[in-house]
Amino acid sequence: MSTKKKADLKVIILGDYNVGKTSLICRYIDGTFRPKEPTVGAAFFLKQWGPHNVAVWDTAGDERYSGLSHFYCRGAGAAILAFDLNSSQTFESLWARFGSILEAANEDCLKVVVGTKMDLLDQTNRDITPEEGKKLARELNEHLDLKKMPHEPYFETSSLTNQNVDEVFQFIFQYCLPLSAEQKKKYGKGSVIDLIENSDEHKSTRRCC
């Protein structure tokens, strides 16, 4: 990990309870499958991608009781909207539950629709077709230039078998990074202060008085 801690890009993940958000992130971050529920202890990862630092935020704790706040979405350059391929209800939630809180994300936030638990899917009897998924992905990104993307921001994944997981993140990073000059101006960290990174030698001097 580089000494530079400040992230250039913030990636968040949204989705109903138990669709496998943490499993997806853990599979990507450290290549293991952890079938663990309520996300406890770690919900923030820094990932280096080339010269860039990416902060991957996971939802924290047990979301059965509380919705996500705008706080979580603030400044996000990309959002993974995860649903369980085996549950059409989790798919419908994406628009219904998360559309409004994504207003707090950056205006040009890339939204990637990601179906999870592909390994459990009965291909002959699908609730949600890939076409429906792609349609939602297009609709969510109608403010972006879809032509710049190799394909629609839609993926079907399995964190158990590692199918398509890296691809989701590669897709995001390739689209979002490096930040354009305009984005840097807009979201650039220029005079923004990171307490940890910017804290400096004065720590010691101030103690003496």
Binding site: G41, A43, G61, Y65, Y72
Partner: peptide
């Protein structure tokens, strides 16, 4: 909200 998030990360239940 930032402190709430820390609490939730360590198992706090929010409603």
């Amino acid at each position: 909200q930032a402190f709430s998030r820390l609490s939730a990360v360590f198992g706090g239940i929010y409603c």
